[in-house]
């Protein structure tokens, strides 16, 4: 007995150490970016100022005063929030139907949805730009919201489907026997029961929308440009303005990291096991 306990304890310690090493490894680039953002562009490339340097807020001041950070940030919030809301509005009824009234082809439909994620975005770059421009939707919030929603819909439906699957079918059927309409069923029974799962799906979708860079960079110029576009715009070809680029990047990922931090319990719970037990 004692031996078993001992070995499992060493096991736990080494696993914890490993987890810490991996976590630090992942965290290091972010840490480095934040550190660099407090250096001047000149200091950023000098090895002697690697750790010991005089911190400055110059990059951040510069960013908010000269680069219109707040407009990009507002656009990011608007597009991500609405894309997430619309994705849920479509995804919840869709996943509900597939989880509780499956047909013979439900599994195939799910696979097909996921397969759309395998399409290289570049393959549709030309038709997409052409279409958005000729429809007069280029650089509008509308097109960004639609595109963000569509590219995340497969993931949203898949996640919701897995959460809904965990709700016992009888509870849904009891609702039907009790005389509730389909919308009532979704509102009164499904959403309250799958709340944790829906929240983590929404959070993940929001993060993906926020971080999206391929389409947001290519389908916008100024009016609907998001933080991804701001970072992209500061990517100077000479590669000199590391301080400035780091500040912009830190300010772009900052909100999402903070959000993730506050919601981590919810996220972990949602991603590992269902909310209904």
């Amino acid at each position: 007995m004692a031996i078993v306990a001992q070995s499992s304890k060493t096991g736990r310690v080494s696993r914890a150490t490993l987890a810490w090493i991996i976590a630090l490894l992942f965290f290091f680039p972010i840490f480095w970016m934040v550190l660099t953002s407090f250096k001047t562009d000149a200091d950023a490339v000098k090895p002697e100022f690697l750790i010991w340097f005089t911190p400055t807020l110059e990059n951040y001041v510069n960013m908010t005063e000269n680069y219109d950070y707040w407009r990009f940030a507002t656009n990011s919030v608007i597009t991500s929030v609405f894309a997430t809301l619309f994705a849920l509005a479509v995804g919840i009824p869709c996943a509900y139907a597939m989880a509780f009234n499956p047909s013979r082809s439900t599994k195939d439909v799910l696979m097909w949805m996921l397969s759309t994620k395998m399409l290289p975005a570049a393959a549709v770059l030309y038709p997409m730009t052409f279409l958005t421009k000729s429809l007069g939707l280029f650089d509008t919030h509308f097109i960004i919201i639609v595109v963000l929603m569509l590219i995340n819909l497969p993931i949203v439906v898949w996640m919701l489907f897995t959460y809904f699957k965990e709700i016992p079918k009888e509870i849904i059927e009891a609702g039907q026997m009790d005389g509730v309409s389909t919308w009532g069923e979704i509102r009164e029974i499904l959403i309250p029961l799958a709340w944790g799962g829906i929240a983590s799906t929404a959070l993940l979708c929001f993060i993906f929308c926020w971080n999206e860079a391929y389409w947001t960079v290519r389908l916008t110029t100024t009016d609907a440009a998001t933080l991804s576009k701001l970072i992209e715009g500061n990517r100077a070809p000479e590669g000199l303005f590391f301080g400035r680029l780091s500040a912009v990047s830190a300010a772009a990922v900052g909100p999402i990291v903070v959000l993730g931090w506050f919601c981590q319990k919810q996220l972990v719970q949602g991603l590992t096991f269902g909310a209904v037990k």
Binding site: P168, I171, E173, G175, M177, V276
Partner: peptide, 17 residues
Amino acid sequence: PSKRGLAMVFQTYALYP
């Protein structure tokens, strides 16, 4: 089912948790 006017008691109770 919601319009048939029948009530059902399930083996697993199926209460709204």
